[in-house]
Design a binder for these strands. Structure first.
Lengths: 217, 217
DNA sequence: TTATAAACAGACCGGTTGTCCTGTTTTGTC
DNA sequence: GACAAAACAGGACAACCGGTCTGTTTATAA
């Protein structure tokens, strides 16, 4: 009886990242041992070490390849595809809330989970995570600026609204994870929706619409 | 040469909690070893084990006695003492932002830090943390209801505003911790301040107060 | 085929962790 | 003072963790 082995470096790497992403999300970085990962992924120590020399390298790959991708897929893409930034934000909040309610438990935001545990532990981790936060915020703010220019649908200051949105979502996910109840997401969304077009302050006056409204695709 | 020993159980317990609170905050639960704590607190294993049989018991004490107290001191008390809920929220945001900027680094919100790491790990942890979140939200909402009754200063729906406030603060602290920049706190505050008195939506009309205010618990 | 490097297997090791255990000292009570 | 219980000291230990190391198999190119 012979046992065949097929070298599949990309598949192996992917499987390890799959398991690591899920385990880090569910148990956190420090509480996940490489032994657990190896067992769950069906991978030997040699293979794991070949693709990821250290545990830190593995986590860094999870952050840069998986967490960033998750934020892009569940937030940036839907917001950019929506008719407006506000509408996009609304859609994501409700989609996530619905999904969480259907699956019956809340594991929290992958970005937030790792950010809390690793930001202070290692500066390389921190910077990789901060980069994702920054891209997330900027995508919303940019979309909002595009709204202002093309459609004219008024709104609050873009950077301000983007920061509040990301913070409210992150915080709401923290609360939801702790209380194991996604309802707070909907409450925060309602609050977000009643953010009025910045009235006071030295912020620039509402910009006049110059171009005709563009057809939405 | 004799070495005298004075039994001071309360002082010993307090010192351990002091160190544990600080260490959990700075490095997290799993990354803090009892050996580190013992060294930092100048406490022997026997003494530590006498007051806190397990690491979990120690963390639970930190949560219930210290984290809850911190939330009460930095949030609930100032908000209750303020002229209105909105004014109280504004004051806390700015006070924390200023404090963080002065100290030059951001360690994050103690409640949030532990909530992320421990909520999914253990149900007892989760419930203790959820209780603090709930009390925090309710204090703001109650204060807001009191504002409505006494002063009449309009505002958004109390529960909604409270949820958004807590979420925005928690999330802003996450971002601030990750980017090591407290500026986002101020941006989120500006956003929060432009939450208008819930205008649209099929939400129930402002509820008329029928009963005198109930004592909280 | 042969040479060469990548891909993988699996044992091994030093260090750490949380907990337990046995003893000693202090404190309070009669 | 006698005595029991609490408070504290400090070592011991088994389990585990992350990383390393050596060896084998597979793919690739000449």
């Amino acid at each position: 009886m012979r046992k065949k082995r097929t070298n599949d470096p990309e598949g192996m790497r992917r499987r390890v990242l799959d398991v690591a992403e899920a385990t880090f999300q569910a148990r956190g970085y420090h509480a996940s041992s490489l032994g657990d990962l190896m067992a769950a992924a069906g991978v030997t120590g040699g293979a794991l070490h070949h693709h990821f020399p250290t545990k830190k390298a593995l986590a860094l790959a999870v952050i840069e390849e998986r967490v960033a991708g998750a934020v892009h897929k569940t937030w940036i893409e839907p917001v950019l595809a929506a008719s407006s930034a506000r509408e996009g934000v609304r859609g994501v909040f409700e989609a996530v809330a619905t999904e969480l309610e259907e699956q019956g438990y809340v594991r929290g935001c992958p970005l937030n989970n790792l950010a809390h545990e690793l930001s202070l532990a290692d500066d390389e981790f921190r910077m990789a995570l901060a980069k994702i936060f920054a891209g997330w915020r900027q995508a919303i703010a940019d979309k909002m600026r595009a709204d202002l220019q093309s459609g004219g649908e008024g709104g609050a200051d873009p950077d301000r609204f983007a920061a509040l949105t990301v913070a409210a979502y992150s915080g709401a996910m923290s609360i939801a994870k702790t209380s194991q109840d996604a309802g707070v997401l909907r409450e925060c969304l309602r609050g977000l929706e009643s953010v009025q077009p910045s009235s006071s302050g030295p912020t620039a006056r509402r910009r006049r619409r110059v171009l005709p409204r563009q057809p939405i695709r």
